[in-house]
Amino acid sequence: MNAFRLAGDITHLISILVLLLKIYATKSCSGISLKTQELYAVVFLARYLDLFTDFISVYNSVMKVVFILSSVAIVWCMRRHRAVKRSYDKELDTFRHYYLVGACFVFALLVHEKFTFQEVFWAFSIYLEAVAIIPQLVLLQRSGNVDNLTGQYVFFLGAYRALYILNWIYRYFTEAKFSRWIACISGLVQTALYADFFYYYFLSWKNNAKLNLPA
């Protein structure tokens, strides 16, 4: 464990908690893509299948449980909570995310570290996490609505990406057999898609700031 990865895990967790708190506090999820949140929940459920079989550390197990619970809590809130689900942009959040799930699963069957149940699902979760932000990106391009995508959420999500890349660079130079190409390449794709999301987020934020200028 190095400082970059620890900080990356913590900023990743904070980004999820910030979003959950924002939705719960404002009882609104307008501008949030339910499909992206569903994909994130699937990512954690598929990746942490080893939760009960491989014990790595207390930290690792506790964080896995927290990631699963918080991501499922967001999906539950957006699908079940009466007040919240009324504010969901159902007609705008129409990206066919099932295609992303299918494509990532087929790709994981082709490219993985070992052809075992857990390894294929692990690779699937890595690929899916990379593309999971696409429905949110599409929704943001359509709606330009950043009401619930707070700056903190976007900041912590970006910090998580940047810190994980620093973590991989650090591990590459300090560990003899560092070969996590699946995670690294997929992580770079994820960061590129995040950068695209950030670009549209910044544009929307700027436009909204202009719109809200004092009359």
Binding site: M1, M63, E113, K114
Partner: peptide, 10 residues
């Protein structure tokens, strides 16, 4: 035996 790539990262 070889546990394969132990995924220690979250």
């Amino acid at each position: 035996g070889d546990r394969g790539q132990d995924h220690d990262e979250l």
